[in-house]
Design a protein around this nucleic acid. Structure first.
Length: 354
DNA sequence: AGGGGTAAGGCTTCGCTGGA
DNA sequence: TCCAGCGAAGCCTTACCCCT
């Protein structure tokens, strides 16, 4: 039943075809070279005809010392195929496209299909750009089969409960590059106001500013400390009203001398070094324990009455409204009339004692 | 009606460049 | 040398929908 719902959702969501550029793949994977020696790499969300992931590993098969490269092609409604490279089978002294072995599949190449899962079991490292609409399932499957991976995702996924928990448990973490990334998209994608262009050949492109890599392979970035320069002061770092922590609006503003709990933007997780800070919990609805039960009126974006009320600040962290610094207030206490600003999606962290 | 959970973006700032 | 104007990079919000 649940699977049906998910499949239906995936089918409805057609916006999952984004082709990663080879320069982005190279830039990220150069940090992982040591992990690939004598390993079986599997690209299980791929269109090998177009995929730059496939291309990257084909070109670098010997350089990385791979044991095997496998990719499954996805078809919506018909049997598909897989491609493999196991080395220089033609014996011409180099690994290239002539060494590709193509084998038909009985199923459609979906990463969840039994055939694809059998291949997954054989693989050591999975590298791909999975459909974001199936991101939870995708990660869950990798964790279930205890696989190493380097995959592209979206910073929004930091706020998915399951993903956040894995990060908190040091089972997965973010890769090197995060932020802006541009992808080739199919022709049927509609233009949009920003982050869209069509190049001189007519190829459509879309970009996102919140792309990041997720991995469970060790990289040096994870051991680097975030360099901080700000000092704590009460006026610049107000406390929340419903949680015992101070608010920080920019990662670079994290004070170096504050020992209590701090709420930082989720992009902090790009810089997370578990030896520098400890993750307490995710500061959004459903994930952390707010200490509030006051009746407040919800204000609109202009700070005006809506006639709607909330008892838990709509499940967000919030702080006293500061007319000098803040945008319009979001809530008004029904009894006292006091105004508050709401704060979204914060990660609650605390300095490790050194 | 209010709470929980979600979203292949969008707003803001940075930094380079060329003209005054 | 300054600064407007621009593209690129940096960095994070909140409206909406579904459920109870």
């Amino acid at each position: 039943m649940v699977a049906n719902v998910t499949l239906k959702k995936a089918k409805q969501n057609k916006q999952d075809e984004f082709y990663t550029q080879i320069k982005d793949i190279e830039q990220e994977l150069k940090h992982y070279k040591k992990h690939f020696l004598r390993k079986i790499v599997f690209c299980n969300c791929d269109d090998p005809e177009w995929s730059n992931f496939w291309k990257y590993f084909e070109l670098n098969f010997d350089y990385l010392g791979l044991k095997k490269l496998i990719s499954t092609h996805y078809e919506e409604n018909k049997p598909s195929y897989k491609l493999e490279i196991i080395g220089d089978v033609t014996g011409d002294g180099k690994v290239d496209y002539k060494d590709i072995i193509k084998t038909p599949l009985k199923q459609n190449g979906d990463f969840r299909s039994p055939e694809a899962i059998e291949i997954l079991k054989e693989a050591d490292i999975v590298v791909t750009n999975p459909p974001f609409s199936l991101f939870r399932e995708y990660i869950a499957q990798l964790m279930k089969y205890n696989k190493k991976f380097i995959i592209i995702g979206n910073q929004n996924a930091y706020t998915y409960k399951e993903i956040f928990t894995l990060i908190q448990q040091n089972k997965i973490w973010s890769g090197n590059k995060s932020g802006d990334m541009e992808f080739k998209v199919p022709d049927y994608y509609e233009p949009r106001a920003t982050r869209y262009r069509q190049d001189e050949t007519g190829q459509k492109w879309r970009s996102m500013g919140n792309i990041c890599w997720f991995t469970n392979l060790d990289i040096s970035k994870r051991h680097e400390n975030l360099i901080l320069y700000k000092q704590y002061n009460e006026s610049e770092y107000p406390s929340y009203e419903n949680y015992d922590a101070i608010n920080i609006d920019k990662v670079t503003d994290i004070p170096l001398d504050y020992d209590g709990v701090m709420g930082v933007p989720i992009t902090y997780l790009d810089k997370y070094n578990p030896k520098q800070f400890e993750i307490i919990e995710l500061g959004i609805v459903g994930s952390c324990t707010f200490t509030n039960n006051r009746k407040m009126e919800i204000l609109d974006k202009n700070g005006l009455s809506t006639g709607k009320f909330t008892y838990n600040a709509k499940g967000t962290l919030y702080k006293k409204y500061n007319p000098m610094l803040d945008k319009k207030p979001a809530f008004k206490d029904v009894e006292t009339g006091e105004l508050y600003s709401s704060i979204y999606a914060r990660v609650l962290i605390r300095k490790r004692s050194s």
